[in-house]
Design a protein around this nucleic acid. Sequence first.
DNA 1: TAGATTGTTAATCGATTAACAATC
DNA 2: TAGATTGTTAATCGATTAACAATC
Lengths: 215, 215
Amino acid sequence: MEGKEISQAVIGRLPRYFRYLGELKDEGIERISSQELSDIMKVTASQIRQDFNNFGGFGQQGYGYKVEYLYEEIGKILGLDKKHNLIIVGAGNLGQALANYMNFERRGFLFKGIFDNNPALHGKKIRDMEVKPMEELQEFVRENDIDIAVLTIPKTSAVAVAEQLVKDGIKGFWNFAHVDLNVPKRIQVENVHLSDSLMKLTYNINRYEEENNVH
Amino acid sequence: MEGKEISQAVIGRLPRYFRYLGELKDEGIERISSQELSDIMKVTASQIRQDFNNFGGFGQQGYGYKVEYLYEEIGKILGLDKKHNLIIVGAGNLGQALANYMNFERRGFLFKGIFDNNPALHGKKIRDMEVKPMEELQEFVRENDIDIAVLTIPKTSAVAVAEQLVKDGIKGFWNFAHVDLNVPKRIQVENVHLSDSLMKLTYNINRYEEENNVH
DNA sequence: TAGATTGTTAATCGATTAACAATC
DNA sequence: TAGATTGTTAATCGATTAACAATC
């Protein structure tokens, strides 16, 4: 049914390649070898070639890689050429910030709506979009063919809301709630656990200090 | 000088353990075996025991682990018992949202200031803290013993600002800017590249569809 | 003591790096 | 053609899982 499965380790590196190649392209650089890219990105040339080869040969022996071509191919792999309808569930600080801050449209996402159960927010305009009550969520998702839900609601409600959204046909979650969602494997979940990330930072700061300072 | 280095793979799992143990503790559960925790968290019991043993034995043979003790020990490992002075650099949507949304104080972080170069924001109150101009950043960091800078500024200025902050004595960055910072290895950096995360999500959604739908 | 479960060693698996033949 | 650099196989490294002896 499918080709060989690509590991998430590789997928996780693609956006960074994409970013560097975009910059190289903007600088007008036309070709690059895995060794040159290795020097810039501080990863091994071997890893770069292995990673790209998961998707077939993008390069030319003796020449290297065409920057623009490679950039576009990685964009396609990441699905940036496809449109995805997206909603934000939870119009608190974080939900509003993401609506305003993320350049959704530039990456193929169509921002279709934002929902909250706080009546004080209903009707408030967030990026030309009025906050809708949660009561309208289910019908909206079903009728507007929504693919992705950004969850910026408290963890107490996130699991139940996610389960309902799965029934309504959501394909993936960008989950900022501090819980693990309980959804079928066919549903994709990308977690952004901000406080976890901050804890990793303090661990590393403290450990560095313990190893090097007063000990 | 130090003990054996703990891999970042292990560190990355600690916050999740910490979260689950906190919940178990709140439910009044006193002891848990690696097997029970394995069932709840969907990771192998073997991995749980290996992970904990990186830091010495927290359990008791034949009994399991004391939930509260384990919870506290992991908290200490993550450095949550230590205070860290923190500032936010960039008071746009994301910077403001993080100031309001993150419960910094609850995890040992002292929110000391927020900076922006937009004069329209200067003096605006964000969580009882007035936005200060970037001109005051350097002196502020030096005089207030700031450990962590949250970077929510555009990528065009992030690298230079980070380099300056390193000179001013910053120990770690929580970096939301979409660039790789160029800082000495002794400085800890935790990147949160939101758009990268979203790209991984679309990759996985698209790939699932290609494998299972029309193909 | 017998049973349970950790701590830890050994085996396996997967990911990264090195090497080099293929080829532009 | 000679030189460069990929694509790809082989070697290494590290992380995960399995197994079991130690011990509570």
